[in-house]
């Protein structure tokens, strides 16, 4: 599948086209030795490194939303093994935007849950663009309780623009479903690792995000409100989303500085979608090493640390 280039990647694309043209001209010769080809290749790489080393908040949001980016089930497929999907909230239905089940990651058996987006219209109809209904959060909690019962750690991979704003979602109390997850995850007696792999859309993300280790992929974002939503309210127009993205400090590195997340998982140059296999390995290694640390910790100590971590979040003047 051809990867759609983002607006800010245009300089790279243009140089790559030039490189192709030069290569055509030097047909028949040893391309690798042609000085013009080599100069151009170096120029492409330098431009690429330069652009990706200086990404703005808004550019990262675009990478996080890229439709070629690996989604939850792609990672389940590549970073985990032996996935058994378990469906339904036992109350109303099964929410396909929040799949979950049993899997292995490295040496660890676990329960894995996450939001799943679609790549085309048909898939998105099924996955609801990765926006869960209450059933998604209630299924997630059911699976987390199963994890607790069988002493399996929980891995939550977050990728959602937000919980679904719809009539049915409100009628079945999506706010309550998220709230209950926040409360129950804080006291769930098993290790929890959460990773924001793409979009961390507000309460819909946090609804599976109360964890002993909260990690983010390098280009993921995690925000209290979408940059567009924030721009519409504070700047009176969605076109100011880039400024809003900057102001919200929604990137992984900023959030680590604020103490909101515990670590950043690097992505291949240009983003996870440029090399999904390498991205999956990086994700797997980060999850495994987090679980290696958390699994041996005594439950009461684990819960106290989890509580203390979130308890310490926020800045204010005592007065």
């Amino acid at each position: 599948m051809k990867i759609q280039a983002l607006e800010f990647e245009k300089p790279i694309v243009e140089l790559e086209q030039k490189l192709e043209e030069i290569k055509k001209h030097v047909q028949g010769q040893d391309i690798d030795l042609d000085p013009e080809v080599r100069t151009m290749q170096e120029k492409v790489e330098a431009t690429r490194r330069d652009i990706y080393a200086n990404l703005t908040a808004w550019q990262r949001v675009q990478i996080a939303r890229h439709t070629s980016r690996p989604f939850f089930l792609d990672y389940v497929d590549q970073a985990f093994t032996d996935f058994v999907e378990l469906k339904g909230d036992r109350l109303f239905g099964d929410d396909a935007s929040m799949p979950g089940g049993l899997a292995k990651v490295g040496p660890h058996r676990c329960v894995v849950i996450g939001q799943q987006k679609g790549r085309d219209v048909k898939e998105n109809l099924l996955r609801n663009f990765g926006s869960p209904h209450p059933e998604g959060y209630r299924k997630a909690l059911r699976l987390m309780r199963m994890a607790e019962k069988f002493r399996l750690p929980v891995v939550a991979l977050i990728d959602t623009p937000g919980a679904y704003p719809g009539v049915g979602a409100e009628e079945r109390h999506i706010a309550e479903a998220i709230a209950v997850n926040l409360r129950e995850m804080m006291v769930l007696e098993t290790p929890i690792v959460a990773v924001v792999i793409g979009e961390g859309g507000s309460g819909g993300a946090l609804g599976i995000g109360v964890a002993d280790r909260v990690l983010m992929l390098e280009n993921a974002y995690y925000s209290v409100i979408s940059p567009e939503g924030c721009a519409a309210i504070l700047w009176k127009h969605r076109k100011h989303a880039p400024e809003a993205a900057e102001a919200l400090k929604l990137n992984a590195s900023e959030l680590q500085k604020l103490g909101v997340i515990d670590g950043v998982i690097p992505e291949p140059l240009g983003g996870a979608h440029r090399d999904p296999e390498a991205a999956s390995l990086l994700l797997r290694d980060a999850i495994v090493s987090a679980l290696d640390e958390l699994v041996p910790v005594a439950t009461n100590k684990l819960l106290q640390k989890r509580y203390d971590k979130f308890r310490g979040m926020g800045r204010f003047i005592e007065g």
């Binding site: 129950e184 400090k249 929604l250 979130f310 979040m313």
Partner: peptide, 25 residues
């Protein structure tokens, strides 16, 4: 949530709910 405090405001949801978990226990 209060947008001006970004993710720190979102995290208050987890913090308050956690305190309620202990109150409930």
């Amino acid at each position: 949530a209060r947008m001006y405090e970004g993710m720190l405001s979102l995290m208050q949801m987890a913090k308050t709910s956690g305190a309620l978990a202990r109150h409930a226990e």
